[in-house]
Write a protein that binds this DNA or RNA. Sequence first.
DNA 1: CTATATATGAGACAGTGTATCAATTAGCAA
DNA 2: TTGCTAATTGATACACTGTCTCATATATAG
Lengths: 128, 128
Amino acid sequence: MRLSQGRETVFAVIMRTHGHFTAEDIVKACRGKASKVSRATVYRSLQELLEAGIVRVTAFGEKHNHFEHTYDERLHHHAQCVRCHGFIEFPDLDEDERYRPLLEKEGFKVLGHEMHFYGICKKCRKKG
Amino acid sequence: MRLSQGRETVFAVIMRTHGHFTAEDIVKACRGKASKVSRATVYRSLQELLEAGIVRVTAFGEKHNHFEHTYDERLHHHAQCVRCHGFIEFPDLDEDERYRPLLEKEGFKVLGHEMHFYGICKKCRKKG
DNA sequence: CTATATATGAGACAGTGTATCAATTAGCAA
DNA sequence: TTGCTAATTGATACACTGTCTCATATATAG
């Protein structure tokens, strides 16, 4: 794999981005730069980072994906509202060690994991 | 909420569907029937079932959603390949009880949960 | 420097899910 | 049963995400 210009720019932009972000967020951020990175390159690079375990997908049930870094953050999970799609975060209590051996025995190379609780958030419950 | 024709048909079709399915699967299945249910109604009903906790979302990182029933199946989770998006299922070891109180304390009404491991599947590892 | 395989950009494209709005219908009350 | 009313529907147009193609550009090896 070459350390090409486009790839380098995308990587840099993503590393500068904190919290959750979508693919389009990165596309826009790259447009701001003089670097000129196309949408296709952003999606390609994002896929590479996904495969490398540098970013992970965090949202369900929406049209577009949300990503976040896997590094430099305390491991946490998400509880998502099935109405408004908003979410709250909560800390990990370490299930990894219980499941990982089971999966690796089946030839699955684990890059990471996430718990996803779904339900109705406080705000939507009030709305009725 | 009314027990309208469209809603009833969609519910029936979904209950007859086993395993994983997409919204479009249901749209097609409803077309087969003489019932004539529009795409809009299918999506609306699916959202209602989601909110009721009857179905849940199970796939990440794809353009369209996958759903499955939450009832009548042993609780299981998914390990998904970041390359081919295929997945394997594995049983639940019951983290629910550890996390649920934490979330309900914050006003979040839990409908269910799922663990999502991501990584590279056996087949994709062989491909290089 | 040159060759060559890899990566890129631009745009066309397909598919998913959303919004609109007039027409229809379920449920209720008399 | 009939009529009222608000909820629901279908048809369609629409926005947006992510994919694909292919000619052009570029990183790297030799």
